[in-house]
Design a protein around this nucleic acid. Sequence first.
DNA 1: TGATGTACTTCCCTTTTTGTACGTACTTCC
DNA 2: GGAAGTACGTACAAAAAGGGAAGTACATCA
Lengths: 139, 139
Amino acid sequence: MAHIGTNENAQAASPSLPKPDVLSPDCPSRAILQHVTSRWGTLVLIVLDAKVLRFSDLKRRIGGVSDRMLAQTLQVLEADGLILRHAFDVVPPHVEYRLTPLGAEVSNRVLSLASLIEANLPQFLSQRPKRPAAAQTVR
Amino acid sequence: MAHIGTNENAQAASPSLPKPDVLSPDCPSRAILQHVTSRWGTLVLIVLDAKVLRFSDLKRRIGGVSDRMLAQTLQVLEADGLILRHAFDVVPPHVEYRLTPLGAEVSNRVLSLASLIEANLPQFLSQRPKRPAAAQTVR
DNA sequence: TGATGTACTTCCCTTTTTGTACGTACTTCC
DNA sequence: GGAAGTACGTACAAAAAGGGAAGTACATCA
């Protein structure tokens, strides 16, 4: 399908543009991908799908986020041009968040991924207790 | 499209199955999503797309992974039933990794997300220097 | 009058993640 | 004969991520 794994981690001399490749550590596309797939970034994009929400709305919908993390995530996503922030200059603060066109496309992909996982959860869980899954960094 | 944000963070009393929702912090689906969207998990799934690769192949293709992280990521993904590990009992170790059918589906979604980002990289980068993007955790 | 809600920011501290280096057991290549 | 390659496990330590509490400025509600 796509042609992602084409240039093997190469960042070789290129006259104009290096051709984006998430597989090479220094390609900016990898950073964007990280933002989108970050712990809270993913959920923000999902929740914001085709909606306009305020900070507190987002917080209520995304179970477990802290103020600090939500704010930070929103800033990163805004800087990447995925979401738009609209602040009204009123006394009790009122800020609205929505997806940009590009953000909407990204959101769709993320949403389809999440839906796939939710739909197959039973299958995932069924094969869980195969091996103890190598306790990571035992404490 | 999908029906994800349906039950608002609810984990209320349900007779049988709680209905998967990545938005509720304790739903197992969120954990799976995290594995899939983890820093290296995403790249492993992309690289493994319709291929059979050995540990060292994976390491070479995924720029920047350390042995430890790659091994750990592979174990988690295997435990989730997304990839299959086949070890040959030979003297210089020989192990092959490939996607399970479910893993292949997940891989496709991830791949489409990554492709979208790569394809729009210029657009992402163009609007970058808007605001200093709020230096996170200033040191 | 006092509590509540809004949208964050900042500080401080704990938890988690990640990297580096080393060891293994044996074979093949130079 | 020594170097390199294979597929990890483990210990140690640095770096990053994350949580919690407090503060702001004012208006509305009871």
